[in-house]
Design a protein around this nucleic acid. Structure first.
Lengths: 212, 212, 212, 212
DNA sequence: CATGAATGAGGATTCATTCAT
DNA sequence: CATGAATGAATCCTCATTCAT
């Protein structure tokens, strides 16, 4: 039944057709949301027939989940690294800027919006996304803060809270206007300003005081 | 649209029927999202016939937009008042807690999710919501901060940024897990903790120092 | 909500539209079978839109079951009466002829076929039909035989079996060729011949012998 | 249809592949009916690819017809033999029991239901089945009766009718409840009872009387 | 103005069939 | 010849919208 170590052309997890479908579906889903996207339009966008969609994915839900999974990986979030040799302030600023750049990337934002939208009806999708993307990057940052606490650079009781606070501070005036389509993605300069302010606030609270 | 100069309560902007429809539609839209809500269910929820819906609203979109408009008013956000006589710390804590309570209101998934969901396909709805609800409450808070700056209690360069920072700090670990369905709405205790921490951070940065 | 003792026009159990749909559906279902019939064709045959079908019936299944219910009543089976004053032989012949006429009516036969076809996948439909049509008419005949036994005219141990045997004998060479589309419905003469033979066989076995 | 005078076993009427397909298709068709069976499932059941199905059969209809043709042969009906040396009563009972067993075979809903189901839409299938299976086995039985008439054992005018009557009598209370899914397949004991009764009736009518 | 029956376009999904390999 | 990926027509069903009453 198995043909001479087949050259992988069928509905495998990584065939070209499958990738092609995912690409098309990604476009449509992120543009129109789950309900707004029709399988017909996805098929057209992917350049395959409607039937082919169902050769590779059981149904619309499965296809959507797959996209969102990939999205979470695609999100460079987890790629943000902390150089332990740099001083804290520089590290924070670098992280903050990178973080906001990712968050306000018009490509990724659609995903956030789409996931938020569907989270009520498909809670697993919401949870998955949160855990893979948000909790993951937050965890990395939390561990960095813990190292700094151990090193005596920072004085923090709840590092998870502190990490969360910093990322929130960096969003400040940037994220909501962007996600609600009021403004375009913020410029690097604007990001730098807000992140600087966030860093100051953060350090004003958590930097170890000389004789505290 | 109004026929024969009808003397009775017609499809005016404020007839009882209209309010009744809006109430029913609000429930359904916030519970199910835009696509999940059907005009039939809205009619049932409002206790009117499907046809009547179209007497008062041109189509589903219009009805939805109207709800979202009203949402800005309905949202108690703008109702949050700042008592100028209270000390800053108490005011901040009260505002922060009220703000998070509204944001993480478990009833109807909170309007914010519904709006975010549709913002891609109906950008004006997103914009409107941002401006009416978010910008509005933020503006109020900003003006309060400006008053405090003038009063010498706080030392802030960019009050809009500071206002934004505070609201973000209050969200910290609370909002995202909630909106992504990872946790239930936060308890009052948890809110108090996070808001306390936010207030400390805020004041550590912006409180006027004795000899600064 | 109730309008002045409404003149019954809506999706009631007996509106004209509903009857219209049933009529159209009946035609298509009996002609094409359950799977062969499409809701589109039923709508066309009934002269209504596809959507209207779903105003009156939850789904294809419900519509089909309704038809089959009606079919069982439509079947005059239960209308066959036994005149207790007539002699047994005449009664048997009359009943037998009427029974075969009904069984080999091109209109009713489609129903039998359609029900048999679907009985595997929708056993309730099969059961219902059997009980309403077959068991019902058989029961009536069984009771007639029991009366004759009590009257001393017939000598039967198992009247239900005997009743069944007689109806089967009447079918003899008539029913199967007809239901398998090999021949048209049998003529009255042919029916009379077969029913006569059946009656003779039946009486040869079950008629009370003078000194038995 | 045959390419390049293929030397190997091609789509002949009797290649192993062909038989394999028919076996798989038979299972699925008899289990699910014509419309319920999908070519995909048939391919799976036969252990071949969907494409191969079309190498051996023009389309679903052809495959189905072929199965039904074969069914006539597969059906052991024609295998029922009459031992001329046995006495009539024993022969009738043996034949009757075998006949009912075939008719009420619980495996695969019995072919008869499947054929009846499709007879409206595919009359030739119905006709074929009747002629090959029913008429055939009935013909054999008819000829047996004719032999007995010639031998003086039985006294029958219309042997075809008599044959038909006997098979019908044997069905009595057994067949319809089974085919309409009201009861399971009858037990051997129940079959024996009904067949005994049928035999008695048959002989009461057709056995040669000493001085008639 | 209020109704709700009727509509028909559109959605997700299935499946017989084809065809390049 | 055998395969199974690809197709697209067809299916059931939903729902926003209209309109006669």
């Amino acid at each position: 039944m198995v043909a001479h170590a087949a050259p992988v052309a069928g509905p495998d997890d990584d065939s070209a057709k499958r990738r092609q479908i995912i690409k098309g579906a990604r476009t449509v889903f992120l543009e129109q949301g789950f309900d707004g996207a029709s399988m017909g339009e996805i098929a057209r966008s992917a350049g395959v027939s409607k039937g082919t969609l169902y050769v590779y994915f059981a149904d619309k839900n499965s296809l959507f989940c797959e996209i969102m999974e990939q999205e979470s990986l695609a999100q460079g979030m987890s790629a943000i690294e902390f150089a332990p040799t740099l001083d804290v302030e520089t590290s924070l600023k670098a992280f903050g800027a990178a973080y906001i750049k990712l968050l306000c990337d018009p490509r990724g934002t659609s995903a956030i919006r789409t996931v938020m939208a569907i989270a009520e009806r498909m809670p697993e999708v919401g949870r998955h996304y949160y855990e893979r993307v948000i909790a993951n990057s937050l965890g990395k940052f939390t561990r960095y803060l813990e190292q700094q606490v151990q090193a005596g650079t920072l004085q923090i009781e709840d590092c998870h809270l502190a990490a969360s606070q910093f990322t929130k501070l960096c969003q400040a005036t940037l994220f909501l206007p962007f996600i609600f389509q009021v403004t375009d993605a913020p410029s690097s300069e604007r990001i730098a300003e807000v992140v600087d302010s966030a860093t100051q606030m953060f350090l004003a609270t958590y930097r170890t005081r000389p004789h505290d």
